[in-house]
Amino acid sequence: MTSTTRDRILDALESVLLDKGMSQVTLESVAAAARVSKGGLLYHFKSKDALLAGLVERLGARVEHQLAETRAKGGGVAEWYLQTPDPRDKSEAVELELYRSMLATMRTVDATSGAGGDGVRRALADLMNSWSDGLDAEVGDPVRADLIRLVGDGVYLRALLGVPPIDPERYRRVVHLLLGR
Rank of each mutant, 00 (worst) to 15 (best):
E169V: 08
E95V: 00
T105G: 05
K38H: 10
M102Q: 02
M22N: 07
V30F: 04
L18Q: 07
L96D: 10
L179I: 06
S113C: 00
G40W: 01
V163N: 09
H65F: 07
R107P: 01
V30I: 03
V94Q: 08
V139M: 15
D86Q: 13
F45N: 02
D126N: 11
R62T: 02
V63L: 09
L96N: 08
G39Q: 05
S29H: 05
E95T: 02
Y171N: 07
A104S: 11
M102R: 03
L51S: 07
K46C: 05
Q66N: 12
R107I: 00
E97D: 14
S101F: 07
L52T: 01
A72P: 12
R144H: 06
A31Y: 01
E79F: 07
P164Y: 09
Y99T: 05
D7A: 15
L147A: 10
L51K: 07
V174K: 02
L150W: 09
L96K: 04
S15M: 00
G40P: 01
D141S: 05
A104F: 03
R149P: 09
V143N: 00
E97A: 10
Y81D: 06
D146C: 10
G119K: 11
G39C: 05
G40L: 03
H176N: 10
S3T: 13
M1Q: 07
A93G: 03
